[in-house]
Write a protein that binds this DNA or RNA. Structure first.
Lengths: 229, 229
DNA sequence: CCATTGTTCGAACGTTCGTTCAAATAATAG
DNA sequence: CTATTATTTGAACGAACGTTCGAACAATGG
């Protein structure tokens, strides 16, 4: 229980991760990935804290001690899930944003990308959203950094939009409201009742873009001269 | 019909709750209420599953076994917190809604009531929002019923507004988006940085009402329509 | 004073937790 | 084949968990 925080060094028998090796994806990696899928299901169902390694052992068919051949602790397990999920969604977003220039369309793309991935990987996204601040120290810092990056992208999209339209509103409240709308989905979404990602992205995009689209509200309120944010 | 749901009968030494008695608020009730406050803090910090009765014992200064004089299980503890929090917010809302008739103002009042209570009781509201589906059977059913009631009120407010303005949009998506905006707050709100409840309610009210205010957005938009304001 | 009732507590119960480890098995190379 | 490495496991560890229980303490009324 006392490590100098190299995350997961070569403490395990042999090479870990897709480093230098004969194959790009080793048997080890494939097996680990499979376990991570089961772990995602278990954490989704019971929550990280209430889920036990024995639950995962039962679900995955791997013996309790056998699991520890693939990772060093339950906490690293959560970290691996969150890291993979979050980096995937950010990478996808970056790639798709390269092909769109219009500020409005870029925001709509952000929403669409988020919801598409959210609904296609609902369990992983709940584990990411719900177990937000359970990781500590190194693990927690790394996930927090990705989160900040993702938030920053959205903030920039919004600021460009504001600038292009000469609007004034609190970007922080707007961005966080948007995240709230989108991330809350895991508490209510039912594929039998609710629309798919494209339709949902359109609806939420409408609400959000229209919501921030015009000037300040009808009633005379505080005057905010120039400084935004 | 499952069970008559007596929740917690008179299994405890003597009378429980503010039933018939010499005083309206017994010493027992006051002491229990104090423990519930500590429990709220503990659940807020560590999450329900990860928080232990020993944590609560330490925080409250009551011995581990002494706690069980006031409730029968950890689960009932969470139930008591959630029940009190939820019924209070609904009761307050009902009372305030009686004094407002205008459909728009009623929606704004709903948002304000929610945010005021949310920020004034942030820890309890996180425990309510975050530990959403951990209560089982009788306890879970009772909280779920209040939740449905609260949701229903919001839905009716929105439907009246739709009818009054002749609008068309998915009430379900709209209501759940609004809840998402509001409930997500517990993940980011910082009283040193963010505005107070009144201001926040105005901002979110603007986004939401404007967002649903115009006609349905079926037409693909390239340019912003020339609506003034 | 005693008797009664309401309240608190230390100590322990049985269970489950995350994790370890030496030994056993499967796969691979020489 | 044998030797080496990669993978899997049963059994067990100490710690922590929620909960129980009988004794002790405090308050009150006779």
């Amino acid at each position: 229980m006392a490590s100098p925080i190299p995350i997961h060094a070569q403490l395990s028998p042999r090479r870990r991760g897709p480093a230098s090796g004969p194959r790009l994806e080793t048997r080890f990696d494939r097996r680990l990935a499979r376990i991570l899928v089961y772990a995602t299901h278990v954490f989704y169902d019971k929550g990280y804290a209430a889920a036990s390694m024995r639950d995962l052992s039962r679900a995955s068919g791997v013996s309790l001690s056998g699991l520890y051949y693939y990772f060093e602790s339950k906490e690293e397990l959560l970290y691996l899930i969150q890291k993979h999920t979050f980096t995937t969604i950010v990478d996808r977003l970056r790639r798709r944003l390269e092909e769109v220039a219009d500020p409005v369309e870029r925001i709509r793309l952000f929403i669409l990308n988020h919801l598409e991935y959210f609904l296609a990987n609902q369990k992983a996204m709940k584990v990411l959203s719900h177990e937000d601040d359970v990781l500590k120290n190194g693990f927690g810092a790394e996930i927090a950094a990705i989160k900040r990056e993702y938030y920053q992208i959205c903030m920039e999209l919004l600021d460009h939009y504001k600038q292009a339209r000469g609007l004034e509103f609190s970007s922080r409240t707007a961005v966080l409201s948007l995240f709230g709308m989108m991330n809350w989905i895991y508490t209510w979404y039912n594929p039998r009742v609710d629309a798919d990602a494209v339709e949902l992205a359109r609806e939420m995009g409408d609400i959000f873009l229209r919501g921030i689209g015009a000037g300040s509200a009808k009633a005379p309120q505080k005057k905010k001269p120039a400084t935004s944010n």
